[in-house]
Design a protein around this nucleic acid. Sequence first.
DNA 1: AATCCACGCAACCGCCGAATT
DNA 2: AAATTCGGCGGTTGCGTGGAT
Length: 259
Amino acid sequence: MGRKPCCAKEGLNRGAWTAMEDDILVSYINDHGEGKWGSLPKRAGLNRCGKSCRLRWLNYLRPGIKRGNISNDEEELIVRLHGLLGNRWSLIAGRLPGRTDNEIKNYWNTTLSKRMLQSHGAGCSNHPQAKPPLPPQAGGEAQAPPEGTSSSPIRTKALRCTNTVLAVAEGFHEQGRAAPEHVAEEDQLGDCLSIGSIDLDLEGIELGFMMSPWSGADGLGGQHFGAPGTEADDLEELLGLGGDGDGHGGLGDLELAWL
DNA sequence: AATCCACGCAACCGCCGAATT
DNA sequence: AAATTCGGCGGTTGCGTGGAT
C-alpha cells in the first residue's frame, strides 16, 4: 500500500552511466534544478529510473563533490561519528562537506571496518554488522528511553552543514544556523561545532543512541561523552535537554568532552 | 602469459517516513 | 482521515581493476 511499483523493471537502462547520460542529466539539472526525480528522466530524455538519476547526481555529478583522498582529519571524524551514530551514513556525510553517504559507507566497509577489527579485535562494537543502536520498531524498545520522558529520541535527519558555523561553548545561540531547516525544532539540539576545517553540527543525534551500551563500551567515540553506563539523567543534564531548555553550558561541556 | 583472487567502488534494491492529494 | 506519491536511506550486489600465483 502506498508503494509505487519499481520503475527499474521496464526496459530502462541499468548499470554504469555513460558520459552522454551524465551530460544530459547535468545539463537538465543545471537548467531546471534538482527535484521531481520521478518525472525527471522522461522530461530530460533519459531512459533511466528516477532513483537512478538521483543517485547518480547526488553521489557523482553534483558540484562540490570531493572524490577519493579522504584526509586524516576526515577519517578520524568518520570513525568518531560512526562510534556515535552507527551506520547512519547520511548523517555522517552531512558532517563532511563534499562527501557522500555512499562514499563514506564504502570507505568504512572497505577500509575502516577492517582497521577497526585489527585494532580492536573481532568483538569490536563498531563493526558494521553491529546492531543498530535503536531498532525502530517494537523489538528494540527495551533499549529505548521510556516514552513521554524528556529523553525521547531526537529525530535523526541528515542536515548538511556546508556553511561554516562556528559555535563554541560561549554564545553559540547567537551564531547563525547553517540552513533554514535548522531553525530549531524543540526536540533538536541544533548546535554546531568545528574541528579544524571540518564543520559539525549536532542536530539530530539521538540521545537514546548516545546512551546505547555499545556506542560507548569499547568504541572510538561514544566514550568521549562520558563513561559507559552514564545515566540518562546525566546526559540530559549534560545536553541541557531536561532542564530549562537553554542547554547552554551543557553543550559546552559536551564539546569539550568530545574533543 | 594466463589465471585466480581480493579489493574498491558504482549502482541497485527494498523499505520507510514525509508530503501531497 | 485515508490513500497515494515522492524522496531519501541503509544494505547489498556486481563489475572492473590490480596484484599474486
